[in-house]
Write a protein that binds this DNA or RNA. Sequence first.
DNA 1: ATAATATAGTCAAAGATGGTCAAATACGGA
DNA 2: TCCGTATTTGACCATCTTTGACTATATTAT
Lengths: 161, 161
Amino acid sequence: MAQLSDMIERFIKELMCDDRQIELRRNELAQHFGCAPSQINYVLATRFSVDHGYLIESRRGGGGFVRIVRLQMSGADNLLSALLGRVGTAIAEDTARAIIAQIEDGELVTPGEASLMRAAVSKSALALPISAKDVLRAAVLSSMLKQVFRNLEGEDSDDLR
Amino acid sequence: MAQLSDMIERFIKELMCDDRQIELRRNELAQHFGCAPSQINYVLATRFSVDHGYLIESRRGGGGFVRIVRLQMSGADNLLSALLGRVGTAIAEDTARAIIAQIEDGELVTPGEASLMRAAVSKSALALPISAKDVLRAAVLSSMLKQVFRNLEGEDSDDLR
DNA sequence: ATAATATAGTCAAAGATGGTCAAATACGGA
DNA sequence: TCCGTATTTGACCATCTTTGACTATATTAT
């Protein structure tokens, strides 16, 4: 049963399909879907976070609104460092997946490559008697990100030895 | 004596007869067979494992599901099982690279994908204060191998969120 | 200014699923 | 029959979603 949250997510993404940003009334949207207004916040928090490549702005009171802005993937030079910065020294699976989704959206990697990256940072890949799973995930993801950007330029780039 | 497990197995296989993958509700299925929900997990674990050529994915919570994916075992019937066997529970970097080279040669993955795999199992990716580097590498590589076989000619491979 | 009204945000509890693991039970072969 | 293995169940855990009560902040009317 297509989850309410999923439907709301799709609805919003359709609205945005060719705009960089949209504004909507939280209560209106909630009413449209017959749910609690806070449900909208849940969807925004879980599917439109910065990690997912979106920014949320809003205003309360009369004439209030919620604005959703899609962040752009800027030039590839500092993009790598930006991404690595977001990865940091430890990262949760969800956040890692969001980053992968973003570079997939930006067509920096193919769907097949993105799948592999997801597999590499998945819970099952790192399900070991190790307390530092997130640390590990960060290391693996960083390594792959660097490889992505290395592949991007010198096509022939032979993997590091 | 048509064990319950056998009936459930057959039931699922019939559902899948012409789909590469299906989704089902664990509790619903359990109810249909009048058994404990965990019985379903037992069937999945014993009859739909990777060795049997299947992958299981799932999601909890409202709208949760269990997805069963039939892996594409072309040609060398159990290439995946063989590869996973070689990976085992621990593997050195060189051996891992050899396996990756093999599937790259066999064109099971693109050069770009192979690069990513190498990056994921590289010394630097796993350079952590952990003694079990090889164990970890095996887990990560296994995870990626499964993904490779999941994707083979599977267009709509919709990764789990 | 102040009060009334219109929005949006937070957070914790309830609801909806699926997962794990070990104990109990059934089955099949020596 | 006895033992080892396969199956079945149930108690307890983990995760995702939905709702509602309470809070915070604008705008508008008085």
